[in-house]
Amino acid sequence: METTAEFSFDTIEARIDSVSARDSVGDVVNRSQHLISIGEQIMSAWLVAHDQEPTTETKEGFRLIALHRQGCKGDPSFNACRETCRELAYHHNLITNDPDHPDVYKRLTMAGMVAKHLCLFVGGKMQVAELGEFCCSSRPIRANGG
């Protein structure tokens, strides 16, 4: 799933709600995979906006994590969504490893909220030019000319 001309963070946000809703159609494993794909789309959108070709490689079994690593190279502020990507991968593992677990829908809901954070965070950073410079935690330690 790659970034397309129709890509918008609002659409993505609505899709996350739809995929993670308890009464949505489709089995939980597919829906969880869909959330991972959405995460990849968000990461790819960031990379494309920064004139980079999104990697097809995987890291720790997830393209999502590889894309995040690619995205934060040269931009430490992007590291602020590292744990979000990892939480999404973690919840996906929980769901796929035990799709019959009594808490599986709760896990899917959580995965949806984690994906939504990713969407809002990256969308927010892209929405306002130079917003990365205002990130609380991760401004480059020695920015050029700083």
Partner: peptide, 12 residues
């Protein structure tokens, strides 16, 4: 709680 270190958008 999976969002324990997530950005709250404070700077925004």
């Amino acid at each position: 709680f999976p969002l324990k270190t997530a950005c709250c958008g404070g700077a925004h």
